[in-house]
Amino acid sequence: MTRFPREGQLRWIGLRPARDVPMREVPSAEARTGAGLVGDRYAGGSGKRGVTLIQAEHLPAIAALAGRDAVAPAILRRNLVVSGIALVALRGQRFRVGGVLLEGTDSCDPCSRMEQALGPGGYNAPGGMGGLCARVLEGGTLRIGDAVAWVGA
């Protein structure tokens, strides 16, 4: 239960500077301990949702269930898209994205905005594939291409 076949990789980073504005794709982001990502609307909150992540491998499945050819990461409103490591297994676990230490806190369920983003039934399309919320335990800079690796409970 504590082994992973390989490390994952950070594929995409997005920030939401305010409510009801589009995500902004960025090549890197600063994560602050207990606060989240600098420039994101959730930075400075409770910390349990400091960073949101989604599995790159789930994007085609969500698109298919929503009746689309593809779904851009920004539409799903998660901060980080990672590939190669099962996010669901990182709930309640500590893991590193590059030099940043995160702790998976809870699943990141879809919100009602998915109906607007994906069309009718969009709320249910990402069911079970909404991703993971995490708190920042040790801050630093996240960069596209960073390794994603399990650290422990």
Rank of each mutant, 00 (worst) to 15 (best):
Q9F: 09
W12L: 07
W12E: 03
I13V: 14
I13L: 08
G14T: 02
L15M: 08
L15G: 09
R19V: 09
D20H: 12
V21W: 00
M23N: 05
M23H: 09
M23C: 07
R24H: 08
V26I: 11
V26F: 09
A29Q: 10
R32K: 14
T33N: 03
T33H: 04
G34Y: 10
G34C: 11
A35H: 05
V38Y: 01
D40K: 07
Y42H: 15
Y42W: 14
G44Y: 02
G45T: 06
S46M: 12
G47W: 12
G47A: 07
V51W: 08
V51R: 10
V51C: 05
T52N: 05
T52F: 02
A56D: 14
H58Q: 09
P60I: 09
P60Y: 10
A61H: 13
I62V: 15
I62H: 03
A64K: 13
A66M: 06
A66G: 12
G67L: 11
R68M: 14
D69R: 14
D69M: 09
V71L: 08
L76N: 02
R77M: 07
N79F: 04
S83I: 09
I85M: 10
I85E: 00
I85Y: 06
A86G: 03
L87H: 04
A89R: 15
F95S: 02
F95L: 07
R96D: 13
V97L: 01
G99S: 12
G104Q: 01
T105N: 12
T105K: 02
S107P: 08
S107Y: 05
S107D: 07
C108Q: 08
P110H: 10
A117E: 15
L118K: 01
L118Q: 12
G119Y: 13
G121A: 11
A125L: 11
A125Y: 04
M129K: 12
G130Y: 01
C133I: 01
A134G: 04
A134F: 05
A134E: 07
V136P: 00
V136F: 05
G140L: 06
I144N: 00
D146E: 07
V148W: 03
A149Y: 00
W150S: 04
V151C: 08
V151S: 07
A153W: 05
